[in-house]
Design a protein around this nucleic acid. Structure first.
Lengths: 179, 179
DNA sequence: CTAAGCATGTAAAGAGTTACATGATTAG
DNA sequence: CTAATCATGTAACTCTTTACATGCTTAG
C-alpha cells in the first residue's frame, strides 16, 4: 500500500541555508551565489528562485524587506528550525547533499559538523567495500579488462576517489575531535 | 536573437552507449545496469527507458528483436555514428559526462581514450586554479574561516579532490602513452 | 547612446519521477 | 498459494529550463 510521496525537494532548504549563511539575500544575489562554490553541488535559475522565495515567505520561513530596488529575505525562527531539522535528517549516498549541509554550517563548534562527517564516513566506507566487491566480481581476468577498458578505468577511479574522500573525512574528524 | 535551443539530452546517448557496450540489451536489463557502476553518474527509470528506446528505434538508431518475452535492442550503424559523434563533442566541467564517455570506451587502443583524458585534464587544471583563486579571495583571514567553517571545508575539500583527480588523469595519460 | 549588468517576474515546454496497470514466472 | 522478480507500458505530476517580458543603472 503505497501512498503518494512526492520526491523530497531540496531547493527550499538550499535557499534557507544560503540566506541563513549571509543573514539576508535578494533573489538576484542567490542566483549569483550559484555561480561560485555552491554551484558545484546545486543550481537553480532565477525563474525558480523568485517564486520559491515568495512561497517560503507565505509559509513563514522567510521575511522580506525592500531596499534599493531589491527585495531582501531573512530566515525567520520557523525557517531556521526547518533548516536545522533538514540538516539533521540522515544522509544518503549523495555527496551533493553532504556538501550542501556542510556548506550551511557556520561554526566549527556546531555539534552537527562532527555528526555529518561521521555519517558520511560510514556511507563512504560501505560504498568503498561495495566498489571493491564489484571490481573482484566483474574483472575476474585480464581479458575482461581489455574488452571493457573504460569500465575498468572508471571503477578503479571511483575506488581511488572514495579512498581519498575517506582519508579526508577521517582527518577532519580527528581535527575536530581535538577541540 | 536567441533561437529555441532545447537542453541537450543525455539519455539517448547513455542508452546507445550501454547497448553498444553489451551488444544487445532489453529495457529491463538497462534499468538493472543503472543499479551498478553506471548508476553513479546517470540514472533513468523504466518509464523513461521504454518510450526512449521506441523513439530511438523509430529514428533508426536501434533495431529490435524479440526473444523470451523480452525485446532486445542493438545499435545500428547510424546509431553507432551518432554515439561516436557525441563522444567526440568537447567536454565541459561535468564529471558525469566524462565518466559516461569513458565508460563507453571498450578498447584500450581507442584514440578517443587519450583525447578524453587530455581534455578532462585541461578542464580540471583550470578548475583547480579557479578554486585556488577563490580560496585566496574569500578566506583572507582566520576570522572568516571561523565564521564560515563549512564553506572553508568544502572549498579546501574541492581543491584536494581536483588535485587527486588531476594526478589520476596524468598517471593514466602516461600509462596510455607508453603503448 | 548603447551594450552590459542589475533586478524581477511569468509562460511554455521538456525532463524525470511516482503511481497505476497488467501479466508471466520462479522460489519458498 | 503467495511473495518476489521479470517485463513492459501509460498517466499524472513535479521539477527545471528556456524564452518572453519589463524597466532601471552604469560604463565605455
Amino acid at each position: 500500500m503505497e501512498r503518494i510521496m512526492p520526491k523530497k525537494r531540496i531547493l527550499p532548504y538550499v535557499l534557507l541555508g544560503l540566506i541563513n549563511n549571509k543573514g539576508s539575500l535578494s533573489g538576484y544575489q542567490i542566483s549569483q551565489e550559484f555561480k561560485h562554490e555552491v554551484g558545484d553541488f546545486w543550481h537553480a535559475s532565477h525563474s525558480q528562485i523568485y517564486p520559491e522565495l515568495a512561497r517560503m515567505k507565505d509559509d513563514g520561513w522567510l521575511i522580506d524587506h525592500d531596499e534599493d530596488k531589491s527585495t531582501f529575505y531573512s530566515v525567520t525562527e520557523t525557517g531556521y528550525r526547518v533548516l536545522r531539522d533538514w540538516m539533521k535528517e540522515p544522509l544518503t549516498d549523495n555527496e551533493e547533499i553532504f556538501s550542501l549541509k556542510l556548506y550551511f554550517i557556520n561554526e566549527k563548534s556546531d555539534p552537527l559538523l562532527q555528526h555529518l562527517l561521521k555519517q558520511e564516513l560510514k556511507i563512504k566506507q560501505s560504498k568503498l567495500s561495495y566498489l571493491q566487491g564489484r571490481l573482484k566480481e566483474v574483472f575476474i581476468d585480464q581479458k575482461i579488462i581489455q574488452k571493457s577498458f573504460g569500465h575498468y578505468l572508471i571503477l578503479t577511479r571511483a575506488i581511488e576517489r572514495e579512498e581519498n574522500h575517506i582519508q579526508w573525512l577521517e582527518s577532519k574528524i580527528a581535527a575536530c575531535d581535538a577541540n
